[in-house]
Nucleic acid binder design. Structure first.
Lengths: 148, 148
DNA sequence: CGTATATTTATAATGATTATAAAGTAGGTA
DNA sequence: TACCTACTTTATAATCATTATAAATATACG
């Protein structure tokens, strides 16, 4: 998981200025391991920084994503893009009912990557691995509502 | 890969009517292993079926996706949703430059799935596995443009 | 401390997808 | 075979996440 300083250093090394807005967005990403959308970050930071604009959140997230500091999760069940500050290879498991996202590490990712290197001629840069299903809570709800 | 009849049978079994539009869309999906967007299918079928509306393409793709007959690929680098008629477990490798998508099978997907079953409490339904990188063509272009 | 320039902000624009309601048709039935 | 009814299609407009633009602002460096 990225630390605040880590993210800020990445921006600095890319020659970007460190503004209070960017600092706040980096702090949010480092301190929350939810998988926020731009709007979620905006709503949360608006309280402490009322002048913040949604455009700035989008800009900063896009910048960080282009630098590889965070990852983009599309297709989480709603029609908005989520971001993931954990750039270690891992799998997102997404609830199709409540959209909750959890991370699962797997040793076999290395082997998969090797398969792709061998079989496609692609020079790989990143990945996005998502499994879909019902989270424990939503399974329980489904049980109790159909059970009797 | 799904056959036309296969897709049509799935619609029938779900109690849906088999219209010429749906037949054409199923045929397109079965006969092309590109990873089309709704607009691509619409543009292609418009020639032979001028009355076709984009709304019908979206409806049919959503229906097929909800029935699990096709898969949804988000985040292909553009801001549109792509569909995949191949529902066998496999990996999409996406070019970040030209958005070309190829499929790669891997035996290790089974093991990954087992890892997730064990580590998350989720009841899994589907998956979407994407790797990003430069396809051979775009690697060549990058070479020749920066090479001298 | 002052300046050049990157950044933020507010606003409007874009464009994919979805909602709505009228017109049309599949498919069972008499 | 013709008919009827619910499901579909179509055209149109609406929605909403994201991006473009340009004026106002603030960072970083001398």
């Amino acid at each position: 998981m990225n630390t605040v300083q880590n993210l800020i250093d990445i921006l600095k090394q890319a020659g970007m200025r460190i503004t209070p807005q960017r600092r706040a967005i980096c702090a949010y990403l480092a301190e929350n391991d939810n998988h926020p959308t731009a709007a979620m970050i905006y709503d949360d930071l608006k309280a402490e920084m009322p002048s913040l604009s949604l455009m700035t959140v989008y800009n900063t997230l896009n910048t960080l994503a282009n630098l590889g500091a965070i990852h983009v999760i599309g297709q989480a069940g709603d029609d908005t893009v989520h971001y993931d500050a954990d750039t270690e290879p891992h799998i997102n498991v997404i609830c199709i009912n409540c959209q909750k996202i959890v991370d699962v590490p797997s040793e076999h990712l290395v082997e998969i990557r090797q398969d792709i290197d061998r079989q496609s001629g692609y020079r790989l840069i990143g990945s996005r691995l998502s499994f879909y299903g019902l989270c424990p809570d939503c399974q329980a709800k489904a049980e109790s509502s159909s059970g009797h």
